[in-house]
Every structure is written in C-alpha cells, then in structure tokens.
Amino acid sequence: MKSANVVKSAGRDLIILSVICAMAWGLTRIRLHSRQIERMRAQVVYSTNISQEAAESLMDCLQQVGFLNGVPRTYHVDRLDNVIHLLVVAEPAILENPQVEVLLRDGFSEVCRTAFPGNQVTVSLNDTKLAPFKVLIKSQQF
C-alpha cells in the first residue's frame, strides 16, 4: 500500500515536472519584437542618402547608445546592454549634403578599421526634424 502511494506521488510529481518543463520550453521560445531584436543585434546597414525612415532609425539607435543633444562629445559605442556596437562613418561633406553611412554591426568591421585609422569620427546631421545635433563617436577599437 505504501509503495503504491510512493508510485502514485512520484507519477504526480513527474506530470507536474513535465508541465513545468513545457512551460520553460515555451518561455525560451518567446522572442522580442523583431524591431527590438534588430536594435539589439544590429545587423542592419543603412547607407547613402539618408531617408526619413533611416534617419529615425538612426535617431533611435543613437538615443539608445546615448547622445548629447546639440553638444559634440565623446561617446562610447558599446552600449545597448553591452551587445551592440554602433559605427557611424561620415562623409566629409556631410554638413552640406547629409549623406551618411551607418553601419550597425554586431562587432567591428575591418572595413571601418581600414577606412578610419584615426580615433574619431564626427557625425552631424542637418534635418529639420532631427537637427540640430552632433555626435562625436569615438571608437575604442581602432
């Protein structure tokens, strides 16, 4: 009788454990909204003439890495919960023609290392909606 009870309670516990495992499995399947993942993992490349949409995305990203409105300053590019690295590669004539190539990469690319052997890249965007702001991004990677 006692062993029957033990078997019964063990069976019950196994069923409960199975349900818990199923719940845990379900939990691991839940993903962030795709846009959040995009920001987190940052594998998107924006380039050439910056569209309003791209500018807004850039703005979002810059806000997440932290930027100082209107004041050029040094920024650390390893924010976003220590996962993303934001690389901004500016064209020299950006003030006249706000062309900007923004590389959002999960890590630093060799291209950027080659293109900017120095330490600092200044990005300025003149856009009625976004401006005025300047961001001086200093990479610790070069």
């Binding site: 939990l27 691991t28 399947r29 839940i30 993903r31 962030l32 993942i37 987190m40 993992r41 919960d81 996962v83 999960d106």
Partner: peptide, 16 residues
C-alpha cells in the same frame, strides 16, 4: 529569475 533567463534566450546572448 525567469525574466533573466528569458532575456538570455530572447536576445540569444547565450550564443554571443
């Protein structure tokens, strides 16, 4: 704790 573990899965920080 669940939140924390979910965070690792949802951002795939486990691999990273």
């Amino acid at each position: 704790l669940l939140w924390q573990i979910w965070w690792y899965f949802s951002t795939d920080l486990i691999r990273t």
